[in-house]
Design a binder for these strands. Structure first.
Length: 556
RNA sequence: UGCUUCGUGGUGUAAUUGGCAACACGUCUGACUCUGGAUCAGAAGAGUCCAGGUUCGAGCCCUGGCGAAGCAACCA
């Protein structure tokens, strides 16, 4: 049992205190103006997870109060991503726009109670009167218009009689409040744009602050969980709910820290910028922290949830090390991903004493972590490919792989000894390596236990197929690209975040792999079949490399 | 010279009627291994932003500082 986070503790106390008859009902309220990212996954896990933990429910509610920014395309991707993560809202899919009539009525009610007024000033004038955080604002000349005039003007605003920006409806609260959000906030503005759900029914649309708490109230939400930047909105949230509610029930807003990850950016605006400027291939580019990007990269929902559980929920604005995310996905894929042989950067290896016309089928275990995943057979012959990296002409002592005169194990096959190599003298490149094999050392054979320093993966040159492999790395080369004063985050894009390898050699069993299938390329990393693959021309995305201690040794 | 919130190993999170600062990631050893993976064993690393106070005893309570973030969209 993991201990309850501070929000779950509050919920538990509310239940004990009998608030809202002990009900727990949360909501996840995305704005359909972009794709969900891993920060949303943190909110989703809290919203759906805590409801589930206390026997409550969680609604999906699209916060679609601004028709300029929102589109149906995003609604579909958001639903797909939530389901992918493993959560379900059953029949409770709502939209803020479902409540436009009720919100409008409430606005009328506030006007009638003398708590809202129409302001004819421009946004610049209103902003100028708002004051600053350290200086009180001044009241609008329209603040004390009479109720009938307000009613008439607001009605005409919605009838389309006025231009956008010419009038707004404001709540009448306190222009001297130390909280800027209480200084007569705008609650309705004129927007003459077709809404993706209500069409042209409305000419006025409520602001976020005028919609969120009331929608919570209409839906019977008990705990409205959001990120820290809404902390200063809470007095306004409560002010509005207080004027709307008729009984004891009331929703409660609680704020938690948003998710920040090192070496990436998390704001929707910045992600959108990367997409628009084509600095990435799209919202689902495998380097993006979007859920669709992570999915395409090869992340599993289980890995994402495990990561989110490990970072917790607090009020401290943290930047989480992406290494923790990478650990979570390795941990998950280690148990799930079948092992296969793929040579990324091939060099030909010829076994000179192996009969040229002979082919053996080697039985290879699919996953040493899970026997139930069985085994497969991999063809072996006298011509193989191994990694260029796995051979050195003059290897240092700590190098456990192949070099002149050295012995290594070919995994699942034989021990071989290097007898020579062919080097292109003009380029310095090794073109072919020559070895002899010891027939007694076949895996499971009489001399199979002989110890050698290294084990290499390989593929048969006569059976291998070509594939494209995309090596993804961190999108940025600064741990906090968005947090650098006087620098645009795009300055820190990592020019090596994608390397494409075109003639990688894959073992024959992989030819039937389907998009999203995940594998461990033995000794290299975890990879996932890309959706752009077509039969006979596979593309693999690197999810994350294996922990590689040789790489560390080599750097020293 | 406002309001709100936050300061615990490198990173993140615990320590819930005050009781030896714990866990995970990362780092570094070593063992094992037909993946330089995984697994196993171990180590280093904070005395809790600072200064006072209450107390037998303070990360936790009190006072005063310091530092950081958010807030001045007809965005959410």
């Amino acid at each position: 049992m993991t201990p309850l986070n501070f929000i779950e503790q509050i919920i538990q106390e509310d239940i004990r205190a009998g608030k809202n008859n002990g009900r727990v009902h949360t909501r996840f309220p995305p704005e359909p103006n972009g794709y969900l990212h891993i920060g949303h996954a943190k909110a989703i896990y809290l919203d759906f997870g805590s409801a589930e933990k206390f026997g409550g429910k969680c609604n999906l509610r699209f916060d679609d109060t601004n028709p300029i920014k929102e589109e149906t395309e995003f609604v579909e991707s958001i639903k797909e991503d939530i389901h992918w993560l493993g959560f379900d809202w059953e029949d409770r899919e709502f939209h803020a726009s479902d409540y436009f009539d009720k919100l409008y009525e409430f606005a009328i009610d506030l006007i009638k109670r003398g708590l809202a007024y129409v302001d004819d000033q421009s946004s610049e004038e209103i902003a100028a009167q708002k004051g600053t955080p350290t200086k009180a604002g001044i009241e609008s000349p329209y603040r004390n218009r009479d109720i009938e005039e307000n009613l008439d003007l607001f009605t005409r605003m919605n009838n389309g009689e006025f231009d956008e920006g010419s009038h707004v409806l404001r709540a009448k609260i306190d222009m001297a409040s130390p909280n800027m959000h209480m200084r007569d906030p705008v609650i309705y503005r004129i927007i003459k744009r077709e809404h993706h759900r209500t069409g042209n029914k409305w000419q006025v649309y409520p602001m976020y602050d005028f919609a969120h708490g009331q929608c919570d109230y209409f839906e019977g939400i008990t705990h409205s969980l959001c990120t820290l930047e809404f902390e200063v909105h809470r007095p306004l949230y409560d002010w509005l709910v207080d004027r709307l509610k008729t009984g004891d029930y009331r929703p409660r807003q609680i704020e938690f820290n948003r998710l920040n990850l090192t070496y990436t950016v998390m704001s929707k605006r910045k992600l959108q910028e990367l997409v628009m400027l084509k600095l990435v291939s799209g919202w689902d580019d495998p380097r993006m922290p979007t859920l669709s990007g992570l999915r395409r990269r090869g992340y599993t929902p289980e890995a994402i949830i495990k990561f989110i559980r490990s970072i917790g929920y607090t009020k401290f604005e943290a930047i989480n090390d992406v290494a923790l995310l990478e650990h979570a996905v390795r941990d998950d894929l280690n148990l799930k991903a079948p092992r296969v042989f793929v040579v990324l950067d091939p060099v030909k290896l010829v076994i000179t004493n192996y009969p040229e016309d002979r082919i053996e089928e080697m039985e290879i275990i699919n996953n040493p972590e899970d026997e139930s995943m069985g085994s497969r057979s991999v063809p072996f012959c006298s011509e193989l490919y191994i990694e260029k990296d796995d051979f050195m002409e003059n290897p240092p002592g700590k190098y456990f792989r192949l070099g002149p005169g050295r012995e290594v194990r070919l995994k699942g096959a034989y021990i071989i000894k290097c007898t020579g190599f062919n080097k292109n003298e003009s380029t310095g490149e090794i073109e072919e390596i020559y070895c002899t094999y010891d027939p007694e050392t076949r895996s499971g054979g009489p001399a199979a236990n002989r110890r050698v320093k290294g084990t290499l993966h390989w593929v048969s040159a006569r059976h291998a197929e070509d594939a494209e492999v995309r090596l993804y790395d961190r999108l940025f080369n600064h741990h906090d690209p968005a947090g650098q004063k006087n620098h645009d985050f795009k300055e820190f894009l990592n020019p090596e975040s994608l390397k494409i390898l075109n003639f990688c050699k894959i073992e024959p069993s992989l030819s039937e792999a389907k998009p999203l299938d995940k594998f461990q390329f033995q000794r290299i990393g975890y990879f996932c079949v890309d959706k752009d693959s077509i039969p006979g021309s596979l593309i693999f995305n690197r999810t994350v490399p294996l922990r590689d201690t040789w790489e560390k040794v080599a750097k020293k």
